[in-house]
Amino acid sequence: MSARIVLQQADISRALTRIAHEILESNRGAGDLILLGIPTRGVYLAARLAALLEEFSGQEVPVGSLDITMYRDDLGRIPTRSPQPTSIPAGGIDGKTVILADDVLYSGRTIRAALDALGDIGRPRAVRLATLVDRGHRELPIRPDFVGKNLPSSKSERINVELVEIDGEDRVTIGESL
């Protein structure tokens, strides 16, 4: 199996910088923003975005993680997944604008589960979605607000996001699935 690199380290950091600017633009500043990453890699993307937002706006943006394992609709069909910790910044999400961060947007089912999970935690003023890669093939009426790269793909392909925090390097590759 040969994997082709579609985004390199510089591309990823450029995409995140642009997303950070777009978030500030659409939100008119960093007020009342909360970033929540979806484990595993969304958590690191959320942390990077929070650092960029703080750099550009001078305002600290709370960041946390939102595990969606318990809200999935396919628990009986996939091997058992261990839940990851959820951490919500002090102050909660009520009345805030929540930006969900994930690495790849595909069927939209993860985001559906994330919206359910958010509903059990509080009532945000608005929820937005930032994703590093949008590969299409949506199965639900869900769309991203901020996209790093649109990557039209075939369902038989596999998109792999690697981040320096856990994989040792930053890159996005596309290859045939096994």
Binding site: M70, Y71, S82, P85, T86, D120, I121
Partner: peptide, 19 residues
């Protein structure tokens, strides 16, 4: 470890999970 995550959800206002 999974029980730790379950214990965290029991501190929330909505304790019920749809799992």
């Amino acid at each position: 470890d999974v029980a730790e995550d379950m214990a965290d959800t029991q501190l929330r206002e909505v304790k019920k999970l749809p799992t």
